[in-house]
Design a binder for these strands. Sequence first.
DNA 1: TTGTAAGCGTTATCAT
DNA 2: ATGATAACGCTTACAA
Lengths: 339, 339
Amino acid sequence: MNNTTLKQIASQLGISITTVSKALKGYSDVSEKTKKAVIELANKLNYTPNSFAVNLRTKESKTIGLIIPTLVHDFFSNVIQGILEEAEKRDYLVIILQSNEKLEFEKKQIELLLNKRVDGILISLSNETGEFEHLKTILSHNTPLVLFDKIAKLVNCSKVTINDRKAAYDAVSYLIKKGYKKIAHFRGSYLPQNSIDRFLGYKKALEDNNIIYDPSLVYVCDNNMDFENGYENAKKVVTEHPEIDAIFAVTDLVAIGIIKYFNEVGIAIPQKIAVLGFSNWFMSSVMSPKLSTVDQPGFEIGRKSASILFDEINLKKNNSPVIFQSIELETSIIERDST
Amino acid sequence: MNNTTLKQIASQLGISITTVSKALKGYSDVSEKTKKAVIELANKLNYTPNSFAVNLRTKESKTIGLIIPTLVHDFFSNVIQGILEEAEKRDYLVIILQSNEKLEFEKKQIELLLNKRVDGILISLSNETGEFEHLKTILSHNTPLVLFDKIAKLVNCSKVTINDRKAAYDAVSYLIKKGYKKIAHFRGSYLPQNSIDRFLGYKKALEDNNIIYDPSLVYVCDNNMDFENGYENAKKVVTEHPEIDAIFAVTDLVAIGIIKYFNEVGIAIPQKIAVLGFSNWFMSSVMSPKLSTVDQPGFEIGRKSASILFDEINLKKNNSPVIFQSIELETSIIERDST
DNA sequence: TTGTAAGCGTTATCAT
DNA sequence: ATGATAACGCTTACAA
């Protein structure tokens, strides 16, 4: 076991711990000779600083925490990759926790991270999260916090999102331009900001194009916006509203559920009903028919969120004032075979 | 910022730090009265132990490290979920790192984790990993290590896998029983044990069924066993071996690449050529045609690996001897529409 | 250029 | 039942 300490090096060399420490950290007030000797011995003994001691001394953990609703998720996997890449650059490690879309877990995970004294926290909120005391707790600990994707507008911290409203608006406008007139929307549950915004964009696009908004064409996918939801609601919508010619789904997963049902019962996509997704999951590109969708830059969202968080961590370290940012990343429509 | 320390509580109560510490940890040699007072004040001040100090003192971080080849991956996402679930039970946190299928990164990540002094490490090896010095370094640090999925047989530690060879054997036998005779295999690259084993299983199944093994029917997918590989090799195999009637793919992703190509050029699945995958990714169940595949219990692999790791961590703490385990989890064939 | 000593916040040993 | 003290391994004023 590698347990070399400064003390050991110091005693072997017959010098003080301080000098060893300084030599290893490249301080200028150490003679070349001793510096060389120290470094040599340190290498030989395979010295690595005890991070526990360093943490205690410097009061930083060189670790950030990340809380996401769920891991088995194309979008979030990409986000994580972006975060890990930024963290790696800065020699930071990332502790990942899931909220499972539950407020209760989200609270618990925050507590764990705070107790661990991570240097900063990244969160994409659960669909249940409608109160924000736990987020304010983070702020009151003076721990930098960046919210991404599913955010709380009311919480005073940096945020990284896409413009869900505009993206949805563009998506539905695109459908209208393609000639679809009776467009249903499978929306997410009522809490997450992005599902609200996508709905709002849908509605606005209809109105701006002189299509009367019909609330009965809006179906709620509240079970984590998943595949089953899409499947079940697709079944419903074709009985209740056989007249529709397109569906705008809040998420690719929902869209894929729709497609599966339509394929099973022989509803032609897009001839009879077009389907437009949201997120651009990898799997969308290998479906039959290939799903048209809105590209949501997960990797970039992760990178940007982490990058802002690290900036704030550094500013805090220098006691500089931090200005919270709200970044909106660009989206684009990926036209494939389902529209 | 929450910075209450034992010292503060002690001084406010006019007692010693020692007593406060004991009271908080439920030692029996503290009077009920002081214990109550301490706990009350601690709650009021929102005391949480400084984990940096605890780590330093106890020499454990209550954190484990996980290195996987890639995060954007259905199977590994499920593995991680299993690991997180076990970790949570034991109040452990998980630091996740990617190797990107590169030996070089794998080495670097191990170093990071070792320097962080995690209490244990879980790894699924990169496809490039053909030497194991870095793994032995972990062992020589006396840090518990569990290898899963892509393992190194030669490294002396616990392992959790499926029986890849048997699974592949069963899979190909199943194809043969269904009447397929000219079965190609799209294998993974030469290093990872599981790609070797799946190939071996394929070969053995042919031989046991009196089908002559034809090496030219084996195509290598060495670019991370991914979608593109399947697509390109599918293109190749139909020119070079138009006579084949089935393909056994090393991974669902490869199989999906095959399916995509076949769909594009109008090769009927499974009438003209059947396709069998491996892993049972979610997306396989929503493809057209739905992919038949071998179910690989990712969640369970994660759980079991973590559980063994925690056992070893505890044994080590008690200076008990640890006996390394090699666990093989059950797989099964999921018959869908592609075979 | 080098070293002394204090301190980070806890836990554990040993007195009292 | 309570407390003084040392120790974990490092960083950093401050002396020398």
